[in-house]
């Protein structure tokens, strides 16, 4: 374990985007399908609005978390602490304000929507759009359930993190240390036949 690892820091700070990216792409395909097939303007507007707000909230959660990690990392570097302590409870730095975070999320959404529309969805035919709609719906539902399940398990199970045992000292002793202790105890015992038996 090395909390000063550059490899670990890069992945921790910037590597959390793929599930949100899948949610964003699912939302774009879903909205594009609704926009191009549904006749009722009111229903169309409501569905697109709800899907957009939901995705904006999820994107905002990613942006806030990433900003928090980046700020904590730079704070740790300044204080000469291991840079990956960003994730440690109680070490989180100041996150972005809600307005700035939502604004960045909005820009990200607009850019991804533009790229998806201009280079991909504009060119697909009706059959492919219908297939993509079903794929996006199933991917979204399965991914959402998977992420919620993993998050709930984390909350309910109450697991300990390795750095909590390694750095702060837990109530448990490492297996390797136990072996050393066992060797020391056995070497001091005056019953060698038990050691070899």
């Amino acid at each position: 374990m090395n909390q000063d690892s550059l490899f670990g820091t890069i992945f921790q700070n910037y590597g959390l985007f793929p599930p949100t990216l899948v949610l964003i792409i699912s939302m774009i395909i879903f909205n594009f399908y609704i926009f191009s097939t549904l006749e009722n303007k009111f229903a169309k507007t409501i569905i697109i609005l709800i899907a957009f707000v939901f995705t904006l909230i999820k994107t905002n959660a990613l942006v806030s978390e990433t900003a928090q990690y980046i700020m904590s990392t730079s704070d740790n570097i300044k204080k000469h602490k291991p840079m990956d302590m960003a994730n440690n409870e109680g070490n989180a730095g100041h996150a972005l304000s809600l307005g700035v975070s939502f604004f960045i999320s909005l820009i990200i959404l607009v850019v991804i929507t533009f790229i998806c529309y201009q280079f991909w969805l504009k060119k697909v035919d009706n059959f492919e759009l219908c297939r993509l709609f079903k794929v996006s719906l199933i991917s979204f539902i399965v991914l959402f359930i998977g992420l919620e399940l993993v998050d709930s398990m984390k909350e309910l199970w109450g697991r300990v993190r390795p750095y909590e045992i390694g750095l702060k000292g837990g109530q448990f002793t490492n297996g390797s240390q136990l072996m050393v202790i066992q060797d020391i105890v056995l070497s001091h015992l005056d019953i060698p036949e038990m050691v070899h038996s």
């Binding site: 690892s5 921790q12 990956d84 994730n87």
Partner: peptide
């Protein structure tokens, strides 16, 4: 991603 998380002692 999994290796990086093990490396920094998060999981």
């Amino acid at each position: 991603m999994a290796i990086s998380q093990i490396r920094i002692g998060a999981y």
